[in-house]
Design a protein around this nucleic acid. Sequence first.
DNA 1: TTTTTTTGTGCAATCGTTATCGGGAACGTT
DNA 2: AACGTTCCCGATAACGATTGCACAAAAAAA
Lengths: 344, 344
Amino acid sequence: METITIKDIAKALNLSTSTVSRALRNSYEINPETKKLVMEYAERMNYRPNPIALSLKDSKSKSIGVIIPEIANHFFSQLINGIESIAYNLGYHVVIFQSHDSYEREVANTNYLVSRRVDGLLVSLASLTTNLVHFQELMEKGLPIVFLDRVPNDIETHKVVADNFTGSYEATEHLILSGRKRIAHLTSPIYLSITTERLAGYKKALEDYGIPFDESYVKYCLYGGKIEAENEAAIEEMLSLPEPPDAIFTASDRLTTGCMSVFQRKGIRVPEEIAIVGFTNISVANLLNPPLTTVMQPAMEMGQQAVELLIRLIEHPQKDEKFETRSLKTALTIRASSVGKSVV
Amino acid sequence: METITIKDIAKALNLSTSTVSRALRNSYEINPETKKLVMEYAERMNYRPNPIALSLKDSKSKSIGVIIPEIANHFFSQLINGIESIAYNLGYHVVIFQSHDSYEREVANTNYLVSRRVDGLLVSLASLTTNLVHFQELMEKGLPIVFLDRVPNDIETHKVVADNFTGSYEATEHLILSGRKRIAHLTSPIYLSITTERLAGYKKALEDYGIPFDESYVKYCLYGGKIEAENEAAIEEMLSLPEPPDAIFTASDRLTTGCMSVFQRKGIRVPEEIAIVGFTNISVANLLNPPLTTVMQPAMEMGQQAVELLIRLIEHPQKDEKFETRSLKTALTIRASSVGKSVV
DNA sequence: TTTTTTTGTGCAATCGTTATCGGGAACGTT
DNA sequence: AACGTTCCCGATAACGATTGCACAAAAAAA
């Protein structure tokens, strides 16, 4: 893997490396003829500056790190597409890491990305992360970080989230207006911002329509690893309560599909016996059996806005004193899984 | 972003940088006491070697580049998970880039990854790539490359693929044995290896069961961009042939869901009017309406094997003269979308 | 003609790390 | 006493690119 360097050009043209460097950057102090000579030679030899050498010199890399729980998930892969589309146009590269919802891997990825001199970080927290010092230390050292979707409460920086409260409220309200009385909520671990926000929207809707909140209808589920079976067991347990729910509002892709699997396996008819609304970005929601009512998050746009904020932070470090939290509207799409009255 | 360097340690401990460097690498020529001193100080100050400096020095990065068409796709995201799981254990980092099925972006990503000194490349070709010189040049310069899934014919290196021929044969055979006579095949662009292999399996099955091959039942579809609508139009066109197919065998996630969308929109009953089998890794195949018969590729395992081959190539450059092409078994899972005789 | 300015180029330091070379001290061997 | 080993450690040169400074030659001003 020999690549051509500035030194090779200098030698070939009988110039010094500094002259070559300046010629390539089109500096005013270089003779136009020399410039032309250098540029043409560089072009011909397909010279590309070594970004590693530049990173070492400047402690900059023109790249941003993204840490997300997992990529095999519609929401997050759309998020990445949004991030990449903008970053690419602004000349930044995107380096993606998965935390797999593990705190340790989140920390390891963070350290690695920092040592690789990324210019900034885009983070959606792992569901098991409660300790945030690894991010706080970096921010104190001046590394720009923008959080998105799963954001921490006690770190002051830009954040981009979906309007989880309203999304959740609308989903719950829709179930109520469809005649459901016992609405369960299957959600993510309690530490996450998305969990509390969605729970609040759910509670508020119940309250507004005079339905008492029942803790036994709420289940916080873990992510990652071999938890799927456990979650499905929890679902089945809830279904065998003395007064089983007649509707279920799930907070993620995985939980939604897990639920539907349970329903299918146990022959529970949807929406006749139970309605379901998912807070999910599954792309094939309309092809499911039955077509699934969803609260969709504007994932692509969230990614775009977050990366814009981050790059602003990177390129104008001092200017930004005010941090903003952008909350983007979700979209409730009503399909067959939640319509029609419960038969119970 | 000031980080502690070997120089800082040297200054603090009144040693030279070389001594510190050697002490940290536990060299035999350093006094155990000095070693201890250095190591403890480094530990206390949370010293981490700068990987950029190392990359610059060694032209190595302990990282491998992955270029795939897109990540918002079950097959490819599973592939990545397989790659990461192995790479992580072997001390390599994984840098992911999407070609979005564009030749230009594939080339751009390749160049960037190379300039970033990745130690090797894992590639699944963009569907519009016909010119392979950007890979050939790199291989001549000694950069290890392993292809997977969408592999080139005329490059000699390790390759990992699914057994597309057999997978396709079994899918077609299954449709034939279920009583289908006019089996259409919706597939990827003709340049791709997966396309020709699957087509061959499809043809062989038809031949073995005495069904004449009809070119008008085969449609090569483009990927990427705003092609979806165009593909769906092609599907509708095929459905309005004088003798429309009574079964359809689709070659990818996108084409499969596109088909099912058309069926749903036009109220075509599956499997009564038409059967469908997808060559796809959609995770919710069993939740679709109707549950979808699929040929699943062992995506995770393909990723694992490919990265193993690549790292072997990286770490033992001379030893490998024989290149192998591993072909992994697919799994046909029969569900409702393809059972029951056609009513026609 | 002499002095000053401008123009074009090279030198050397820098970023963090390691490999190469070499050297001093302490010890053992003739 | 003279020499060779062994043990520790330091100075230096890379890796590729940029940049402040120096400096020569040429051009302009005196």
